[in-house]
Design a protein around this nucleic acid. Structure first.
Lengths: 176, 176
DNA sequence: TATTGTTATACTCTATAACTATA
DNA sequence: TATAGTTATAGAGTATAACAATA
């Protein structure tokens, strides 16, 4: 069997010989939007493979990081922080708790250490924190992410990295 | 009610006053992978809104463009071109055909115009082409995309655009 | 045996709306 | 009335495996 490259086509000539043709991408080729998508997709897949070796998904990693960096965050706050509806977060948090990576506590009434005043106790909200096991998972994931970043850095080049990052942030902040 | 920014938290002070706190993103803040994802997500959403006003999704747009630029492409070739499994393409093509944007023909046996030899007829494959209606839809979508590109260009700046695009292509090509 | 495209099926991620329990 | 979180449900997009027709 004859091989072609990944996005190649094989056309048969009039004598039945194989002719490899490249796929034409037309205007997509020059558009930032399309190439942004392609780059993200490839980078995401690469990191996905890496982090799945230690049994986590990139989404879980981001969630875990946000909880670790914002101890006691509520689920609604967390859903805002990563731009998803709160209902989408329910099964994620459930899973992290079930696996012992995150701890979920109801806000409880109590007394402040200094003042004798009763502290508020909103019994609708949960406070989220990472457990020791969660911290450990996070350490491994962070190591993964740093390796991945090194690969990306090598591709981008030290000279352009800073500016590239700035532009990515600018797009996220300003587009529409 | 007091407002906070999109990713803000509200903590209550000891006197019950609202204290707005920013979410901390920790190392995510400085990682290319995370910011690449954020930028792509925002840009994609923006284009999605735009193209949905004319009843298409970004995915349909890419598929339609690939067919238009590669007339007679087969479904398997098409699935390679956008990096998805062929089975994922079946409902997409089905939908485009149903709505009259794409035409699907079996390869049929026939005679070449010049040679008298019988031409090959692989009756397993379909050849895909865009119809007149498909071309019309594509024209509108392309207009949309160009508007979207102008927004992105304005954010990126003329000076950095070329280099930015190069880096995106490099990431897609080289990562893992 | 290998390939093209379909089908059956399932999984992930996401959203909306209705609900509960609080506030 | 309003808010925090859950549940029920649905949709988009994807994949794997088995299959029929054809090569």
């Amino acid at each position: 069997m004859r091989k072609t490259n990944a996005s190649g086509r094989v056309r048969r000539g009039k004598n039945g010989e194989a002719i490899a043709e490249a796929i034409r991408f037309g205007p997509l080729e020059y558009w930032v939007g399309f190439n942004l998508r392609m780059a993200q997709e490839h980078a995401f897949q690469a990191f996905s493979r890496r982090s799945q070796e230690i049994g986590e998904s990139p989404g879980r990693f981001a969630t875990l990081t946000l909880i670790a960096r914002n101890p006691g965050i509520s689920q609604t706050e967390l859903s805002h922080a990563n731009g998803r509806d709160k209902s989408s977060l329910t099964p994620v948090v459930e899973d992290l708790v079930r696996r012992g990576l995150v701890e979920r506590k109801r806000m409880r009434a109590g007394r402040g250490l200094v003042e004798r005043k009763r502290m508020r106790a909103d019994r609708r909200t949960y406070r989220l924190n990472v457990t020791a096991a969660g911290k450990q998972a996070l350490t491994m994931l962070t190591r993964c992410a740093r390796q991945h970043e090194r690969v990306l850095d090598r591709i981008i080049g030290q000279r352009d990295r800073k500016r590239f990052l700035q532009i990515l942030k600018k797009i996220a902040a300003e587009v529409e």
